[in-house]
Design a protein around this nucleic acid. Structure first.
Lengths: 234, 234
DNA sequence: AAATGCGGTATTGTCGACAATTTAGGCTTG
DNA sequence: CAAGCCTAAATTGTCGACAATACCGCATTT
């Protein structure tokens, strides 16, 4: 039980382990958007050679968390307000679709489990414990289950692997949704109701609104300082 | 004008060049779905070392054209009928969204250009020349412009980089849409009309139908032999 | 004869060194 | 003083070799 802070072993291959560590470093904001990723430096930090690190960077590029230009290296993605809006727009369409499909494809067991999950959330929020928890993991968990309930592997891949990490990254920075947990939970319950009724059309509509609300709040928070300039530090 | 067949130089870096060559080899079916990608062999073939080749494979993995399992190598993606349906389902949602957005965001110049493009297609089809061309490049071109007209970089990225190549790969194999060029063109014109009217809702509906039709035809072609088994050769 | 363990071979994962390219700073030059 | 070149440092791209792992055929055992 020696090294809890440093747990360097994860994943089958070294490249995978580096990928995970690097991804969390980016998502949690330790590596600021726009900052340069120097291969040699990161390789030293993660105790590996440049080979696996390079592969990790390429994976992150696919997930839109970094951008690389040939011969000039990689930088942490830095989304402009416009791109951030585009991200939410796309998410709205995809998760709306997920909700519609989930309404017809989720099993009753899955629906039951989702309901108990939401009830647990309700308890947590009423007791004012874990508000932060709810916003992070709980919200993610709800959307995650909807996407899985849609039973569409392509959709799941695009949303969970590609787009979600990007949003988590920016959610971190603004701590989006402060004090909106109860409202969000209410919306989650409504979506659940629509799914229980097997009303795909309604579920899609509610989900789109739910995400649209989050997107417009995000827009307000960003446009106060930046209008077209990237949201970055360096 | 010596080597037209073999033009080994493409892209700024070797990995990029390999990526393009390998991707076309896969999309055109030269490397059958399910077949194994042996790094040493491909490296020899493309006249490079395993390093750049490895990076190309990782890029293709992000585009869902290959699947890798740690320590066991990469194989050309082999979609089951179910996954293929999921692919079209997702495309339907995304391109529907693209059409809706394009209806409000495309400039009149862009719309004019799109109209002349379709008129050229009409001429080609009526004269019975280039039916094959239309189905391949022309159709792609139309959808490409709609996606760009939506002015949403995330959407464009997901559709064009990730999903489109996969579909081209399977379109090749079945030569989907044989003799449907005139019908497809008609549908394209209707979508254009909706965009000219700035009627996003209608444009979305028409686009979804347009793609849904292609998807169900594809489904018919595949379910005749395979129901749950992957569509592959080896 | 079927299952299981055991090599040997093929293939992938990782590393360190070298080549090519970009980047930064100083110097010259107009 | 500004602009442009030119060198040097830093960084990325590429390669070949070695280590680790998975795959395959064969012998052995029950």
């Amino acid at each position: 039980m020696a090294d809890i802070l440093q747990q360097p072993e994860q994943g089958a291959t070294r490249a995978e382990a580096v990928l995970k560590q690097l991804q969390t470093a980016i998502v949690q904001g330790e590596l600021a958007p726009g900052s340069k990723l120097i291969e040699a430096e990161l390789a030293r930090r993660f105790g590996t050679s440049r080979g696996p690190l390079r592969e990790a960077i390429r994976d992150l590029q696919a997930r839109r968390l970094v951008r690389t230009t040939p011969n000039a290296g990689a930088r942490v993605a830095s989304l402009s307000a416009q791109e951030l809006a585009a991200l939410y727009e796309t998410r709205e369409a995809l998760e709306g679709m997920a909700a519609r499909l989930a309404a017809t494809r989720m099993s009753v067991e899955q629906i039951d489990e989702l309901e108990t999950l939401l009830e647990q959330h309700a308890v947590r929020i009423r007791s004012d414990q874990g508000v932060g928890y709810y916003q992070e993991e709980g919200d993610y968990d709800f959307h995650f289950r909807i996407v899985h309930g849609a039973d569409n592997p392509v959709l799941a891949n695009v949303l969970l692997d590609d787009l979600y990490q990007l949003m988590r990254m920016y959610r971190y920075r603004f701590s989006v949704g402060s004090g909106r947990a109860d409202r969000a939970l209410e919306e989650h319950f409504r979506i659940l109701e629509a799914i229980k009724d097997r009303d795909g059309e309604l579920a899609e509509l509610l989900m789109r609104r739910h995400i649209g609300a989050a997107g417009s709040r995000l827009k307000n928070e960003t446009t106060q300082d930046t209008q077209n300039t990237p949201i970055t530090k360096e």
